[in-house]
Design a protein around this nucleic acid. Structure first.
Lengths: 139, 139
DNA sequence: GTTCTTGCAAAATATTTGCAAGACG
DNA sequence: CGTCTTGCAAATATTTTGCAAGAAC
């Protein structure tokens, strides 16, 4: 995703496209796999960790990224490709490799629907499968 | 669960039933909802945090508890009611209330099966639905 | 007596906030 | 100007380890 596309994406979600935010968005866009705050910080050494964090928090509020939890090594973030600004409607399960600690998107399959008991109101869901990825399996 | 039952449970899973471990197991057994390390520590003020942690780690290794992740406030632990000592075969989705931070077991429903691509090997799965629980919904 | 367990302290991680200076509208 | 954004420092929170004393086998 080039700079212009990033700017457009940010604006589309109501986020002012500052220099830092564009860099963070580009870093996310150029990553195949969801990234943790620490991983992003390592890639973007020019921006302070706290601002990467603030950018991610802001993106999350504006439904521009998903926070992916359950990997046992912190929250990971991925760009949200849906253009819905109100909800995260493109959530999908993920796979966490216990050896290399990478998180893979299983985006060929939808998030399973769970029937909730009376009175529970769902806002989001996280599904994380853990195991060994093909790459580590070969070793 | 009384003391004798706890001792039996620990032994059944190959964990030596020390005084501390029995207390931790009892605390878990008497909790309707999965507990975080901090919550357990608060309940069991007599035992040091590090030992509660070590007990939980040991229990996890012996498939006596499940670690539940994805709640955005740390790992929670619940007693495993399966008597399988090799695998966690009674995993189920959970519901995390974003208001009261309680985690509810949705154990009336099985963990959904996800078809993994060639080469991925699953060892466990976590599914967390987030939202508002019936109790907080009423407020 | 050798191994296991415990408590206390503290390291290692991870997340989040305060604040003053600077940028932007 | 007034608000938003940034960098740096540091507070919080959470998880994990080191170690010496004590308990169990």
């Amino acid at each position: 995703m080039d700079e212009a596309a990033c700017v457009a994406l940010l604006e589309e979600h109501g986020v002012r496209p500052t220099a830092n935010r564009i860099v963070v968005a580009k870093a996310l866009a150029s990553s195949i796999q969801p990234q943790s705050l620490a991983e992003l910080e390592r890639k973007i050494s020019t921006i302070d960790k706290s601002n990467v964090f603030r950018a991610l928090t802001l993106f999350k509020e504006h439904h521009l990224v998903h926070a992916i939890e359950g990997s046992s090594d912190g929250t990971k973030y991925e760009l949200c490709y849906s253009h819905n600004h109100e909800h995260d409607d493109d959530q999908h399960p993920h796979f966490y490799c216990e050896e290399c600690h990478e998180t893979y998107c299983l985006d060929y399959t939808d998030m399973p629907e769970i029937q909730l008991p009376e009175g529970f109101k769902m806002t989001s869901a996280n599904m994380m499968i853990k195991g060994i990825c093909p790459h580590c399996n070969k070793k």
